[in-house]
Every structure is written in C-alpha cells, then in structure tokens.
Amino acid sequence: MTYFFQLVVSGIVVGSIYALSALGFVLIYKSSRVLNIAHGQIIAGGAFIVYALTVFLGLPIYISFVASMVITFFLAMSVERIFLRRLIGEPIISVIMVTIGLMSILNGVIYLTPFGSMNYSFPEFLPTTPISLGGVSISWTQLMGVVITAILIGAFSWFFKRSTIGISMRAVSDDQFAAMSVGISVPRVFGLAWAMAGLSAAAAGAIIGNITGLNFETLGAFGITVFPVVILGGLDSIIGAVVAGVIMGLIQQFAAGYLDGNWGLNGTADVLPYIILLVILLFKPHGLFGTHEIERV
C-alpha cells in the first residue's frame, strides 16, 4: 500500500509541475486564441535568469526567483509588443507561425549565452533530507513545486473570475470586436496575457530546473512535453490544466509502477498518456474543460 501511495504522491507532484508549465499556453490561448510554440524557450529562459541572478549577481535565490518572474513578465510583454501586436486581426495561423519564428530566435539568443550549451544546477537552498510519512517520501524541491503551483493557479483563477482586467481578458477571448465596442483595449489584454504567461513560465522553469538541473534541451523540451496536458484539459481552461496535469502525472507514475518491467512492457509511462488523451478526445473533442464553441453558419 505504501508503494501505491508513493505513486499517488509522485503523480500529484509531477502533475502539478505539468499544470504550471501548461498554464502559459492556457493564458495566451484564453485571451488571444493563439498557441505559443515558443513557450518551452520561455520556461528555459526563466530558469536561466534565476541561476544568473543567484550565481552571477549573488542574490538570494528566493529573491532571484521573484525577480525572474518579474523580468520574464516584462520580457514576454515586450515580445508581444514587438512581434505580435501588428498581427492583431490577422489569421491565427500567421500568429502561430510567428511564434515558431520566435522559438528559433529565442533558441539563437540562448545559444549565444553559456546556458545554451553548458549544464548547471542551482545552489542547494533546501534541506536534502526528504519529508517522509509512513514510508512515502517527497523532497523539499517537489513540495515547493506543488505549493508554488497551487498559489499561482489559485491566483490566476481568482484573477480571471473576479478582477476587472481578468474579466476583460475573458471578454476579448470570447469576441474581440464585441470587447472593443465596450471599450476594452484588446492590445493591452494581449500584452498582459503574454506577460502573465511569461511569469508562470519562469516559475515552472525554476522548479523544473531544480529537479532536472539546468540543461537547455531538457528545459526547452518541456513546452512540447506538456502539450498533451493542455489539449486534454481544454486549451482555454486553467482548472483543465490542473486536472489534466494531475491525470497525466498519475497515469505516468502508475504505468511506470505497475506496467513497465512486467509482461515484457517498457516505456508505457511515455505512451499511455497519449493513448488516454486520444480516447478522451474521441468523446470530448474540446478537452475536459475546454469551451465548446458553436458556430452559426
């Protein structure tokens, strides 16, 4: 039974990190209907900024973590202002193509720094002894990941439901022209969506980097790794990202714990989430919590 509970805890931990990583996709899609293909690069960038501030500038890591979120907030906002603002009103596919280009540009920029091709790890700042309860253990890094994810997701959920700007963002997501007609600044909303996505990506990058170490390929690949989570949860649903993240995390852990290594099976933890994703999409094409849009012809 301890084994089962360990898998549950590990699944929730991994799922939380998936959810936080997926949040950036959701925030941008929710307001602008655009999929940001460069999200993985922003995750990596956030992690590298934390490292640079901590090791190169000597700031305490907690301050670096917050500062990194602030920096990526403004960086992502600038990216939107420079590259995407002009594309408002253009076909969505054009905007997505720009994010593909952006991915290449960010790759190039990161390769110009030592982070592009060197491996690093954050200085140890948390106790290395794990927290154990009844044989089930969780590291401080993992616990911190779950807590930060919970705080950020709670904050964003509140923001979209209760704040005026959040409601404006949802209005823009529903209908840009209608939102403009009631005085909402669509460009401002888009900029803010990108900024918040940048902020969440920095948090995700710092947490993943603390688990895997700072390797650009590994961190950058997370943009793609969490894609099934985004699709399963529904592209525009924050709660969907959380539920789908945890589902994916649990499936992976149970597959690794009970299927892999038995009956000649191997690698099911990597394949099973996609199989389940396909099955669920057969019945719920917009994901578990995605908005089902009805188009009147």
């Binding site: 084994y3 360990q6 898998l7 805890v9 590990s10 931990v13 991994v14 990190i17 491996n119 253990s137 993992q142 993943i208 688990i211 895997t212 170490g213 390797n215 390929e217 590994t218 690949a221 997370f222 790794t225 992976q252 852990q253 149970f254 690794a256 714990g257 892999d260 290594g261 690698g267 933890a269 990597d270």
Partner: peptide
C-alpha cells in the same frame, strides 16, 4: 527512459526486484 520528472516508481520497482546496480548508457540529464 523518457523525460521523467520523478523516478520513484522506477526505483522502487527495481529495488523490489533486488537490483543492486544500475548501469546507465545515456546522457547526463
């Protein structure tokens, strides 16, 4: 291996099978 963020299941499974040595042939991450 895949891109695992938590190898608890794998490690506990290996331990339950009495594995004493894990021989790796991959990259560092």
């Amino acid at each position: 291996h895949g891109t695992d963020l938590d190898n608890s299941a794998l490690l506990q499974r290996l331990a339950s099978k009495g594995v004493q040595y894990v021989l790796c042939q991959t990259v560092q991450s």
